[in-house]
Design a protein around this nucleic acid. Structure first.
Length: 356
DNA sequence: GGATCCTTCTTCTTCTTC
């Protein structure tokens, strides 16, 4: 049976919970027809079906359920329903069997400086270096954005399209602006708290009226994580890799349960109970740590990472601690992304000079 | 002082039945 037709059948089956006749095209089996079927009498929905005649069809549909849908098949199906995705690329899986061109070390030197006196002063806050052409130094965020996998681009476009269909262009714009505003507010309040020494530990709860109402839930969400945070060394501080030539801003460097970590705070609408739910966040953290370790402004090394996902309803945040081994793995992934970005840039610039 | 940059988020199929 043709693959696309199979999906239509599958979706129809799930829409109405009714087995319908095989159809040769979407027009022959429109969604409105399905709704009509759905709204008909509820008693014994299978009574009108010649089950013997369609038993092989039913079997084949059921058998196909073990096969997961891929971006290719979803795209074909979505194009029937929503029309083609404007920026769609042919998705292909990217099994990372590749190795970075150069395996730059994650740490600047093997001996990690652990001098206690470094922890005594206030947290560092190095703002971006002045007097340099910043446009020539790409940021971690930009590199990650420019090197998203085709799958990521596909699912993000698909999500955007669905959201616009639901909220409209303006509604979608407002929705994303609101997400950004909340994230920024959360970060800035957290920054103040962490700058204030460890006074947050004297509070029984971070859910106090002094914080803006829209982020009180997030503060409650992270309160149990903050209990384990100590010795804050840097907040919202610029890091720049001396040789790999990229920069970024780390949210926080502190000890979490006694281990020095690069900490990244995130707000999320969906629960992210596993590290694998956080998409590129681990790569981002490894990139920051690698930059910090190779930035002359910082006299210490950080081998571990922590991603904290906070929730608006106050549900306890998920804190994903990354071991030094895991950080090294993500460091390699980061180096690959960096290679990819460099290749993109060089091919773009050579195309530009050819044009001229 | 204005312009620009970084960052802030968003993704992974989806439903019923027991």
């Amino acid at each position: 049976m043709h693959v696309a037709r199979m999906f239509i059948l599958k979706r129809v089956v799930s829409f109405g919970g009714i087995i319908v006749l095989p159809c040769t095209s979407l027009s022959a089996c429109s969604l409105s027809a399905c709704h009509r079927l759905r709204s008909t009498k509820r008693h014994s929905p299978y009574s009108s079906v010649d089950s013997e005649r369609y038993s092989s069809l039913v079997k084949s549909v059921m058998k196909s359920r073990v096969t997961s849908q891929s971006p290719e098949t979803l795209q074909a199906e979505d194009e029937h329903i929503y029309g083609p995705i404007v920026k769609a690329q042919l998705p292909s899986s990217r099994p990372d069997m590749r190795v970075p061109k150069t395996l730059h070390p994650f740490l600047h030197c093997e001996e990690t400086v652990e001098a206690e006196e470094l922890e005594s002063g206030p947290p560092a806050r190095i703002s971006s270096k002045r007097g340099q052409d910043k446009s020539s130094i790409p940021s971690v965020t930009r590199i990650l954005q420019q090197t998203l996998s085709p799958e990521q681009i596909f699912y993000l476009e698909r999500w955007k399209k669905r959201m616009i269909a639901e909220l409209g262009e303006d509604g979608f714009k407002e929705y994303t602006q609101n997400l950004f505003r909340q994230g920024k507010l959360f970060h800035s309040v957290l920054e103040d708290i962490l700058m204030s020494g460890e006074s947050w530990k004297n509070k029984s709860s971070l859910e106090t009226p002094e914080y803006p109402p829209e982020i009180q839930g997030y503060m409650k969400s992270i309160s149990h994580v903050l209990e384990d945070v100590s010795a804050v060394r840097a907040i919202e501080s610029t890091v720049q890799h001396d040789t790999l030539n990229y920069m970024g801003i780390v949210d926080c460097v502190a000890r979490y349960r006694g281990v020095l970590c690069v900490i990244d705070w995130k707000t999320s609408e969906k629960p992210k109970p596993f590290l694998s739910n956080t998409y590129d966040n681990p790569v981002q953290v490894a990139a920051y740590a690698g930059a910090l370790n190779n930035d002359g402004n910082y006299k210490y090394q950080v081998q571990n990472g922590l991603i904290v996902v906070a929730y608006k309803d106050g549900t306890p945040a998920h804190a994903h601690q990354m071991s030094s081994e895991l950080m090294l793995e993500y460091w390699k992934t980061w180096l690959l992304r960096l290679d990819e970005y460099t290749e993109q840039r060089s091919s773009a610039s050579s195309a530009f000079s050819e044009k001229r």
